[in-house]
Nucleic acid binder design. Sequence first.
DNA 1: CTGAAAGCGCTTACAG
DNA 2: CTGAAAGCGCTTACAG
Lengths: 328, 328
Amino acid sequence: MKPSIKDVAAASGLSLATVSRALADNGLVNEQTRQKVLAAAEALGYRPNLQARRLRSKQSQTIGLIVADIRNPFFTAVSRAIEDAAYREGIRVLLCNSDEDPAKEAMYLRLMQEEQVGGVIFSPTLSAAAAIAGTTFDFPLITIDRALGDADCVALNNHEALDKLVDHLVANGYRRIGGLFGNTSATGQARHDAYVSAMHRHGLTPDAHRLVPTMDAAQQLVGDRLDAGDAPEALIASNGLTLLGAMRAIRQRGLRIPDDIALAGIDNEAWTELVEPALTVIGQPTYDIGDTAMRMLMNRIHEPALSRRVVALSGELIVRDSTRPRTA
Amino acid sequence: MKPSIKDVAAASGLSLATVSRALADNGLVNEQTRQKVLAAAEALGYRPNLQARRLRSKQSQTIGLIVADIRNPFFTAVSRAIEDAAYREGIRVLLCNSDEDPAKEAMYLRLMQEEQVGGVIFSPTLSAAAAIAGTTFDFPLITIDRALGDADCVALNNHEALDKLVDHLVANGYRRIGGLFGNTSATGQARHDAYVSAMHRHGLTPDAHRLVPTMDAAQQLVGDRLDAGDAPEALIASNGLTLLGAMRAIRQRGLRIPDDIALAGIDNEAWTELVEPALTVIGQPTYDIGDTAMRMLMNRIHEPALSRRVVALSGELIVRDSTRPRTA
DNA sequence: CTGAAAGCGCTTACAG
DNA sequence: CTGAAAGCGCTTACAG
């Protein structure tokens, strides 16, 4: 049988209480006593039972992380940052994929309550707000990438990002600039609005599409536009998948980037640099987003009364060949 | 305060035992009684405390997953498959990144014991074998991608994969075929050996390098070979990062693929299809690997006495332009 | 089918 | 600084 704290107590000739204190290293134990306990524990190969510790101490040392899909490079990078930070603090991370499915989101949020987590970091869908409106949680919630109710939030500065993109294209001589934005997340909405206002600032007419943010949908939509012969001079795609779909549609028709149509997007995924021509993008501070979310969560766990904070982190405009100055 | 099972018992006028049985839905409860309990629980907003349940029942309904780095697309895909399977079974997954660091591996393995997990899926480093040689765990261990001691293992059929790659290159007229293999994992070793035997089978002389499996190392090494003027006719890179490094070195020097040097690799990462020319690769059955690992783990949890099994899954040769038939 | 009681392994006031 | 005792919230033989 696995040795318990009781066995360590017996082996070291001390009481349960003392052994517990020595092992958890929380105060008030004679140094010699502590050494004796440690030696006995070592000899027995004692390992604490975290279930018992958590039940009794009411501290789970665990946080939840609910992302849309870990295979999305954005979330992969953010998750890694969160886990690094958690590791440093001795905290466990429960990772869940919601697949942008409100039912899964609700289920995982409920699970988090049952796990007695200290807090949750979450990338909610648009409909999450409605679904969890009534519910109140026992833990603080930090959202990443997208806002939700009155939860703290850390995300890309979308407004600034779209400004940079539109400014860059305009500076390079493009005027009819189209935009592709997701319709399942608040992010798509935010980027759309930022795009529209940036266009207006330049006295240009917005030409935006909201669509399901998948490669296929974007490829289809852009293809149709191209086939109909009313392609814009430049196109901005609001995330990695739609950017990829747009590029495929353009290539498929034998058109040249940027000569026939310029292309830019958000998310500096590895492939955007490797394709020909390389694509101009806004690189998100992914690691920083994860790290900041973790820091905000720790803060709020320790000081629940803090007022709500929304942190917008700046992205970096990475200029590549897909948006070279217009020659025509 | 959060309602406990006690509150539900009081509200429904039943005993703790009956409420527990009704809630956990394990046998022997009158249907009407069950309904009454469920209604009371619902009304109170009762949520079970999983810490207590696990402590008492000795079943954690949790497994551990220790991968080298979740940002590696191979592990990202495998993890997702494991999580999907776990979700279906109502099991939680504890995800950890070892960074190929034996100390972190040992730490996380110890943590898994403390968490009382039912089992662990693990991608061990080469040195893990030595580090955990003495230790014996309370749970079954399944390794993915790499073998370890007498643990069950599921991985790509490396032998077959290298055979396919070498056969393909030979069939397309290449004879001086070089190979780049990682030196930190058993996988690199296995692929190296498979490559050597495939070359011998064709009566060709192997020309293999073992190196730190990073982009920079591969770029440096391939660059040096090219500069020294003794480049092979074709090059096989044993994983995504070394493949990328090799391609960069070749491009940097203005050489053409495949005319000056053909290039092929393992891991069908998204970018390999998007670059110019697209790269020939072995696509790993990533989702299948994760799914199979999970199935094997469940099997072994239920039947610990099973003899060891090693599952080798076939990869798919995806032929693209980087290995077109040799013209010279 | 239901209930009273013991106990999972730990921590934490409370005395001393 | 150390120990005896209670209790975290649940499940599970054991009776009835």
